[in-house]
Design a protein around this nucleic acid. Sequence first.
RNA 1: GGCCCCGUCGUCUAGUCAGGUCUAGGACACCAGGUUUUCAUCCUGGUAACACGGGUUCGAAUCCCGUCGGGGUCACCA
Length: 556
Amino acid sequence: MQTPVTRFAPSPTGHLHIGGARTALFSWAFARGRGGGFVLRIEDTDQKRSSDDATRGILEDLRWLAIDWDRGPDAPNEQTDTGGPFYQSQRLEIYDRFIAQLVDADLAYPAFDTSEELDAMRAEAKAAKRTFRYVRAPGYDRAAAMERMQREQHVVRFRMPPEAITVHDVVLGEVTTSADELDDFVIRKADGFPTYHLAVVVDDELMGVTHVLRGQEHLNNTPRHVALQRALKRDDGTPFRTPAYAHMPLIFNPDGSKMSKRDKDKALKAVVRDLGGVAKAMEHPGRGAITADEASLEAWLGDKTAQLPTDALDGLARAFNVDLPEINVEDFRAAGYLPEVVCNYIALLGWQKGSDVERFTIAEFVERFDLDQIGKTAAKFDREKLLAFNFDTMRELGVEALAARWREWCARYDEALPAQLGERFELAAKMAQPRAKTLRQLREPIAFTLLADDAIEYDEKAVQKSLLKNDGAGLALLGELRTMLGELDDWSPEALDAACAAFAETRGVGMGQVAQPLRVAVTGAGVSPGLGETLALLGYKRAVARIDRCATLANE
RNA sequence: GGCCCCGUCGUCUAGUCAGGUCUAGGACACCAGGUUUUCAUCCUGGUAACACGGGUUCGAAUCCCGUCGGGGUCACCA
């Protein structure tokens, strides 16, 4: 087989979607596993929706996932690469050349319909229960049209040949589309930009792409692309080739709906409703993050199709302290998933080697991956399983490596934490490791130490159960424990555990009788990591301060 | 609605192309038990699926047809 060249061609209209990440991962792995090339191309032909910010975000997301490209934006040798530039908006002359080629051969033609006229035609077809198809009128006056296109705004349409087209898909097999399903589609818009269909075909040919991996939603477009490939010739006269296609199954939400950016919007609308509507939400402590006015929010809430920008969505979610569903790669990063785990998990969504092996490194994936193992069925995204994978990987990392990853994550999402923990950072990581499934959750098991000593709130049930019950037996023990702790000069977790065990031994009580009062006194709750670790994390001064405050409060 | 794709435990899937070794395997989740100073971790065990109906065959999860169900797509978005 020829050395493959694959590509990932995102449209920079937002963050990288998790489904897009899988497409990128598979394309990349396929090329890397066979010594092939991987191209990154930015499909920014929609002037209104594309943005540089989105492009930057997508590049960053790909890098985080460790997906690298050898040709494309920011590639080391971008300037000398063949096939560039890799932004479609910079390739307009190239597209125009091929469009002219088609028009000259009468394989494409200018059309002057307004959008109102097109809408009317569609409405008419719908009323007559016909499928709308745009085909060039039999009496089309080409000469007049060619003259008219010099001075009038127009689109260019491709003359779809009246024949059925069969696509040989690596995943789905042969898919045939009959001629009456296809019409004369637009290849250049009125603004002079090519449409996706034209640009993708021209670029894949010119960039030497041999295998196109993409989502199944593109399956219906493929016959158009094949028709274009058959009509076009390179400048040297050689015909375009049709690459191998592999359409991958879609990724769904657990409820079976398509996983999309709109899910976040939907989730936030539900949150605002739960809060009691916009007016109530504006009274929420986190309302400072709300930049929109009440009226526009009201309009948004009342309109099912209205969507807030992603950044506004994320801002509000933080303000209301709710978690929105993770949809974009950036969401998973912020939620504290490890990139290699995200790759491992999404690889499993629609791909399986035919064995029981589910956990693998990216290098192993590259080695094993092949197109014929891609499944046909859409997969529901299961966060529980992702969480389980992330948890396992965090454990396998070992404390030191985990702490390093946590630090990296904090630098971006929880800047104050490392400073707060100081040199106890690694101990905190060790304590939280078996109790957290994400880097973000690592904070929770050790949150008690982040509070000021006089700010901890005591859980009444725990106080009752461990301190006050049996005429305050626990409270009484607490006083002795304080003394015992004061005599210790080794405040390591091990020494503390040993001292508490010895104390219990001499008192003739179980370890639980000793541990629970102490635990409640220093953390406020009946639940915390191991007692020795819990005390060590606080240190002698803070632990004693908390014990004293607890005793005072309990006596009141 | 037209066209297209898909249908194995709750979820992701192995098995389907080359029908028997499948009383259908694994993972996540769930349930039960064990270890443990709490919570977790950890260990052991368990529940759970071939969408339905026909056909072909000695034999069907696997091949064929139909039904039902789910999804995609019908733009001067990609």
